[in-house]
Structure formats: structure tokens, C-alpha cells
Computed example of a mutant assay.
Amino acid sequence: MIEAPPESSGYDINVFEDNKNVVRENIEVCSSIDVNPLHPKCVAIKLTAIIPAQIVKDLTNCIGEKEIITPEMVYDLSKAFDSGDTDYLANKFSLNQEQLKRIAEFIPNINWLGKLCESENVSLFVDAEFTQYQPGVRLITLALMHIFNKEKYTFWNTYQCYLKKTEEHVHMDTKLIQDVGVRWAGKIVRGAYMQYEREKALKNKVEDPVHDDYDSTSDAYDRVAEYLLKGVAEGKDWRFILATHNETSLLKACSTYSSLSIQKNVYFGQIAGMGEALSCGLAQTGFPVYKLVPTGTVDEVLPWLSRRMAENSHMMAGAQRDRIMIQQEIKRRILKN
């Protein structure tokens, strides 16, 4: 799929239609897989693959710099999605007629996505985007949770822990979704746009939104993980995946998971081809683990993979360990035969 570049303003409906075909195919393939009923079938996409980036920019501007999303905003946006009537946005959102018209034009794409996931019993990870998009993406995802997460965990928001505000957002969103009476679901990651966000902040002479160093990000990640794990253990109606290649964070989370005797709604994940030793170790010790498999042509997936390599540069020592373990396993199988 083609994702929107950071300064995108225009759009091509044909691209969105092509992307919808890719999304449909992936969701249908995912739905056909036979898995443990306790483990969700999951697909991840970017919202800007099926709606213009300008929509999420407009909603981001409505939310404001403090990035506070209220239950009323979620109610009104979900009503607009449900009915197709953007008049519900007139009171809480400072949107002009052109902006409202653009939202109305693409509400069918949003509803199509939700209904498809619901009918195919597939959970959808809404991937994080650049900070000028992310508050709008977050609001849309919370509104979709309000519509589709009443009895299932259909929509999951992604939280990037390398951003200073993320920990607060996790606390705010879990409380908000609980207050509106539906189920919260999330994917917890470190983040993949660090270089771009730092350069943008420097250029615009604003505060860097990214934590000062890797250790600060790791500490934030661990605090978020602990908060969510304790919430699930207390019976909160949450479901989430801890997606990380950091062995220290994984060990802390696994220790908390075990000590709290958690039996459901918490998962671990790594990218296919990265952190194989971690994934195998988790699976062999009984933890529910997922591998994220990017799909598409080389040109389409390479930018995504390159960002993940940059994100996981601190973990590259693990790649050497993976190679050693693979070589040992090959030798073992040869000698066995």
C-alpha cells in the first residue's frame, strides 16, 4: 500500500481504491487462518492508506496542542461515522464546509473497514503516523472503538513510547474508553519516526517531542507495560500487545505477567526476521507471541522496514545471536540425519 508522506495535502481516489483491495485481501487471508480462539487474528494498516492525510491533519488541529480528547469528541465523531452526517461535528470541532465535505466523502471508507473487520472477526491494528497526523488518527481510532468494540476488540490504537506524551495518552485513553462503556485495545511500540520528528522540531524551533535518550524511552515503555498488565490483572476490559525487540523490557513484562497470573488479553510481538531468538524463547515458555509480517512489493515495504531497522538499532546485537542460533540448529539437524 502507498502511505501518505509527512507533508501530504492532495490525494488520489484511485490509490485509496487500490489500497482497499490490498486491505480486503489481507483481512480475508487473515480471517481464514485457524488459530487458538483466545488469540486474535490481526492485521495492521495506516489510516492514510484509505483516507486523505488532510482529514487527520484537520482533526489534529481541532484537538489542539495539548492533545486532549474528550468523551464528547469521541461520541460526536462516532455518530458522524455511524450516520454519515457531519452535522454532529459542528459544535465540538472547528471545521469549515470544505473540511466537513472531505470527511463526509470518506466516511464510507472508514465504515467499510470497520464492517469488514467485524464480519471477518479480525482485529485491526491502526498504525501510528507522524506527529502532525497522530492526534487525529488517535481520535478516529477511539471513535471506531466506540462503534465496533462493544463486544469485541476490533480496533486497536498504536502508542509510540519514544514520544514524551504517550504515557499520559495511554492513561487518558484507557479511562476514556472505559467511561464510554466499550473495550480498549492497543499496540505498544517504541516508535519509528525519531529522526524525522527531531529534525522537524529543530527546524520549527519547538520542543523535541521525543524522549532525550534510549533509556528514557525504555523506562517509559516499561511503565506503560506495567500499568496495562496490572489493569488486566485487576479485571479491566483491555487487550494489548507489547511489540518490542528489547530483551530487558520483555523480561520485565514477562516477570510481571507471570507474577500476576495473567491468562488472557496480553500478547507479545516482534517483526518477522527480527528478534527470532526472543520470539522462540517466548513461545517455548508458553507466552502468546505474534510475528508481524509486512506484505507488498519491495518498493512498498522497504521504507517501513528501514524505519524499523533504525528503531531497533540498539538491538542489532540480537541479530548476531540469531545467526549463531540458526547455524547451530542447521548443524544439529544435519548431524541428526
Rank of each mutant, 00 (worst) to 15 (best):
R308E: 06
V15R: 11
T154F: 01
G191R: 09
F125I: 14
M315L: 05
K331E: 11
V210S: 00
E167S: 06
K115C: 00
D212R: 09
T70M: 14
L38A: 13
R190F: 03
Y153L: 04
R323D: 00
P108E: 06
T295H: 12
A4N: 02
F268R: 08
M316Y: 08
Q54N: 12
R308T: 05
I262D: 08
H39I: 15
T48A: 06
N96A: 06
V43G: 05
I2L: 13
G64Q: 10
E207P: 09
L202V: 01
G286C: 14
M315A: 11
Q134G: 01
T70V: 02
V266Q: 12
E7A: 10
A44H: 05
E168C: 08
L116D: 02
T86Y: 13
Q263L: 10
C62L: 10
A104I: 07
F287A: 10
F81V: 05
Y257L: 11
E17K: 14
E197F: 04
Y153Q: 07
I50R: 11
A201F: 14
V137F: 01
R198Y: 04
T295M: 12
E67D: 12
R198Q: 13
F130S: 08
M1P: 13
A277H: 14
D215R: 09
K200Y: 03
N21Q: 13
M1R: 10
R198T: 06
P6Y: 00
S218T: 03
K57H: 11
H245S: 05
Q134R: 11
N337T: 12
V170S: 01
T244V: 04
P108S: 09
T48K: 05
D222C: 13
A220T: 02
E3G: 03
L242N: 12
G281W: 12
V56Q: 09
A143M: 08
M325A: 11
A53D: 12
A80Q: 11
F148G: 09
E199R: 15
V137H: 07
Y153G: 09
I68S: 08
G181M: 07
I63Q: 11
A44R: 09
A253G: 07
G10C: 08
F16W: 01
D173T: 00
F240I: 14
F81Q: 11
K115P: 01
A80L: 12
V189Q: 01
H245L: 05
L282K: 13
L142T: 03
M316S: 15
E67T: 10
R239V: 07
T141Y: 10
I55R: 10
E67Q: 15
L176Q: 05
D208I: 01
H171N: 03
V293H: 09
N337D: 12
E168M: 03
S258I: 02
K66Y: 02
D179T: 15
N157W: 00
T297D: 09
D87G: 12
Q270C: 11
E120H: 07
Y214P: 06
N246M: 09
L305Q: 11
V206F: 02
T244E: 07
A90I: 15
P5W: 02
A243D: 13
R102E: 14
L77E: 10
A44V: 03
M315G: 04
I271S: 02
D58M: 11
Y196N: 08
C42M: 15
E167K: 11
V180R: 08
M73Q: 13
T48H: 06
G275M: 05
D219A: 02
W156V: 10
A128P: 03
P209M: 07
G235D: 07
L260T: 04
I334P: 00
I271H: 06
K203R: 15
K164E: 04
A49K: 01
I27W: 01
V210L: 05
